[in-house]
């Protein structure tokens, strides 16, 4: 038998999956909200807190922490709710490749969003300094900014992992958004609770990362929480999607 032995090049899958993130009405609305929120939060913070580059840039992260994981969740669950997996997995039956192509765009979006926030924060800092006639503070700690951007990526990865594990957008979104509240309750529930929160709550373990002051102990705690909140659920989620029967 003569069969062409060239699999679909990965970059094509990546292009298609990236497009899917932005080519629907909801995707476009989400992108518009993301951009508007970045601009509004940075300008707003500039007017209230004064012209400090690092403060202004990372302010956008508050919105990102909510919106970007939701974007990730929707990208891995949406095809199951609309049953378009019938088409997607018919085009590329090797589901792991499809999943990788689906996970990369939201992660890259997180990086781009962080860069965008910094880019917006620079002129806003300058303009606010000029308008309020106070000196601008430009000395942002590069390590802290980097840690902040990495945290954004981790939060999206957690959304992706939950999305693939549950394959149910509402459930994954609720858990993702309720997690900080739940962890803070766990943390205050006693010594065991505070130990658990210290080691497993991604919100707590990424704190030192965002401060740009990660010690050895902090790094260990971060690694443990990444393993528990991202790596394990993601591995289970990938396994679930690969094995799942499409109805």
């Amino acid at each position: 038998m003569t069969h062409p032995t060239i699999p679909t090049p990965f970059h094509r899958l990546l292009r298609a999956e990236t497009r899917k993130l932005f080519d629907t009405r909801s995707g476009k609305i989400m992108t518009a909200v993301l951009i508007a929120l970045t601009l509004a939060s940075i300008v707003g913070r500039g007017l209230t807190s004064g012209p400090r580059l690092d403060v202004l840039a990372t302010t956008a992260g508050i919105g990102y922490g909510t919106l970007l994981p939701v974007l990730g969740i929707l990208s891995v669950t949406g095809e199951w709710s609309h049953r378009t997996v019938l088409t997607t997995f018919a085009l590329e039956p090797r589901r792991r490749r499809v999943l990788l192509a689906k996970c990369l765009p939201p992660l890259i979006t997180a990086v781009v969003a962080s860069l965008f926030a910094v880019l917006v924060a620079v002129p806003v800092t300058a303009v606010v300094a000029d308008v309020q006639d106070v000196p601008a503070v430009w000395d942002a700690d590069p390590l802290a900014l980097l840690g902040w951007a990495v945290t954004g990526v981790l939060v999206v990865a957690q959304g992706l992992a939950l999305g693939m594990l549950l394959l149910n957008a509402p459930a994954a979104i609720v858990i993702c958004l309720a997690a900080p509240v739940l962890w803070s309750a766990v943390g205050r529930s006693g010594p065991t609770g505070s130990f658990l929160a210290e080691w497993f709550d991604l919100g707590a373990t990424t704190g030192p990362l965002m401060d740009g002051a990660l010690t050895g102990g902090d790094a260990t705690r971060l690694a443990v929480s990444v393993l528990l909140c991202i790596v394990l659920p993601m591995a289970a989620g990938v396994l679930r999607v690969v094995r799942k029967e499409v109805r």
Binding site: H3, P4, H82, R83, T84, L86, A90
Partner: peptide, 18 residues
């Protein structure tokens, strides 16, 4: 199959679209 959609066209549920 490598690049199966080049060799097999499928329409399994016309309603399954975003």
């Amino acid at each position: 199959l490598d690049r199966p959609a080049y060799r097999v066209g499928t329409l399994l549920d016309a309603g399954a679209q975003h």
